[in-house]
Simulated scan of single mutants.
Amino acid sequence: MEIEQLSKANLTDLVRLVLELWTDCVFEEEYDNYERMLMSDTEICYLLKEQETYIAFIHLTSRTDYVEGATDYPVAYIEALYVKPTYQQLGIGKKLVSAGENWSRQKGCKQLASDTELTNSSAIDFHKRIGFDEVNRIVCFVKEL
């Protein structure tokens, strides 16, 4: 298994993984979003490849705006982390987070933050297993006007 940084060559493969994670997204829209990232200093994606198949990715940003629980800025943030279901529980997510930690340190970040849905117990357990501390739980609301 090898980790690759997002590039023009693997952009389509990344978008396919993104669509597995967020099934309501549109290919062209996500392709444009991630293509812009190729030139970014504050965002990065890493993909993990098993032989010739991309099976996982992590998307990170360096944020200077408010991040729940963060005490030092900039703070690195895991925007997305996805491992194909048949490859979960094999240490792949941890390996990608480790690559993200290295990038975060290079960007001068002293903290790495993340979030997940309150009902996503497997993601909560994963975060705790790899050293994250839970800092808050929230319920969000919207009112139509």
Score class of each variant (00 low, 15 high):
Glu2Val: 15
Gln5Pro: 11
Gln5Met: 13
Ser7Gly: 00
Thr12Pro: 08
Leu14Gly: 06
Val15Ile: 10
Leu19Ala: 07
Glu20Asp: 14
Leu21Glu: 11
Leu21Val: 09
Trp22Phe: 15
Thr23Gly: 14
Cys25Ile: 09
Cys25Gly: 12
Phe27Ile: 06
Glu28Thr: 13
Glu28Met: 13
Glu29Phe: 11
Glu29Ala: 13
Glu30Leu: 05
Glu35Met: 14
Glu35Ala: 15
Arg36Met: 10
Met37Thr: 09
Met39Ser: 13
Met39Phe: 14
Thr42Leu: 03
Glu43Pro: 12
Leu47Trp: 05
Leu47Glu: 07
Leu48His: 04
Glu50Trp: 04
Tyr54Ala: 02
Ile55Ser: 03
Ala56His: 00
Ala56Pro: 04
Ala56Asp: 02
Ile58Cys: 00
Ile58Gln: 03
Leu60Asp: 07
Ser62Cys: 04
Thr64His: 00
Thr64Pro: 04
Thr64Leu: 07
Asp65Phe: 04
Val67Trp: 00
Val67Asp: 04
Ala70Ser: 13
Ala70Asn: 06
Thr71Ser: 09
Thr71Asp: 12
Thr71Met: 11
Asp72His: 11
Asp72Ser: 13
Tyr73Val: 02
Pro74Ala: 02
Ala76Thr: 03
Ala76Trp: 01
Ala80Arg: 01
Val83His: 08
Pro85Met: 01
Thr86Ser: 13
Tyr87Gln: 10
Gln88Thr: 15
Gln88Gly: 14
Gln88Leu: 06
Gly91Ala: 06
Gly93Ile: 07
Lys95Ile: 09
Ser98Asn: 14
Ser98Cys: 09
Gly100Glu: 00
Glu101Lys: 15
Asn102Ile: 12
Trp103Glu: 03
Ser104Arg: 03
Arg105Trp: 11
Lys107Glu: 02
Gly108His: 00
Cys109Thr: 02
Cys109Lys: 00
Lys110Thr: 15
Lys110Ser: 15
Leu112Tyr: 07
Leu112Gln: 06
Thr116Asn: 06
Thr119Asn: 12
Ser122Ala: 15
Ile124Tyr: 00
Ile124Ser: 04
His127Asn: 04
Lys128Leu: 08
Arg129Val: 01
Phe132Tyr: 15
Asp133Tyr: 08
Val135Glu: 10
Asn136Gln: 15
Arg137Leu: 05
Phe141Lys: 06
Phe141Gln: 07
Phe141Gly: 06
Lys143Phe: 07
